[in-house]
Simulated assay, not measured.
Amino acid sequence: MHVHNFTKTPTKPVEVIDRSISELTDAMQYTGFQGRKLAESVKVWENMLKDDGTTIFMGLSGAMVPAGMRNVVKYLIENHMIDCLVSTGANIFHDCHEALGLKHYVGSHLANDEELFGHGIDRIYDVFAYEGEFRDTDHFIANFAKQHNGKSYSSREFIRLLGKEISEKGNTDSIIASAYLNNIPVFIPALCDSSIGIGLTIARRNGININIDQIKDVDEITRMVEASAKTGVIYVGGGVPKNFIQQTEVVASIMGHDVAGHEYAIQFTADSPHWGGLSGCTFDEAVSWGKIAKEAKKVQVFVDATIALPIVIHALHEKTNAHKRNIPCFEWTEGGIDLHF
Rank of each mutant, 00 (worst) to 15 (best):
M1D: 15
H2N: 15
I17Y: 05
I21F: 00
L24I: 00
A27V: 01
Q29V: 06
G32T: 14
K37S: 08
S41L: 01
S41H: 02
L49V: 07
T55Y: 03
G59T: 02
V65E: 02
P66D: 03
Y75R: 00
I77L: 04
D83L: 08
D83E: 11
T88P: 07
N91S: 06
F93Q: 03
H97A: 05
A99L: 09
L100E: 07
V106Y: 14
S108R: 09
F117S: 13
G118H: 12
H119A: 14
I121A: 04
I124Q: 05
A129M: 10
Y130T: 07
G132S: 15
E133P: 04
T137C: 13
D138S: 04
A142Q: 05
F144Q: 05
A145K: 04
G150W: 08
Y153M: 01
S155H: 04
L161S: 08
K164R: 15
E165W: 02
S167F: 04
K169A: 13
N171S: 12
T172V: 09
A179E: 01
A179Y: 03
Y180P: 02
N183Y: 11
V186Q: 02
C192V: 13
I196R: 01
G197C: 13
R205V: 11
N209Q: 10
I210A: 06
I212N: 03
D217G: 03
V225M: 13
A227M: 07
S228P: 06
S228M: 10
I234N: 01
I234R: 03
V236F: 10
G239R: 06
V240D: 06
V240N: 10
N243C: 05
N243I: 08
E249I: 07
E249N: 14
V250T: 15
V250S: 14
D258H: 14
V259M: 07
E263C: 11
Y264G: 00
A265W: 01
Q267N: 07
F268A: 08
G277I: 15
G280F: 09
T282V: 04
T282P: 02
D284H: 14
W289E: 13
K294H: 15
K298S: 12
V301S: 01
D304A: 10
D304S: 11
P310D: 05
A315I: 00
A315N: 00
A322Y: 13
N326Q: 13
G335V: 07
G335K: 13
G336R: 09
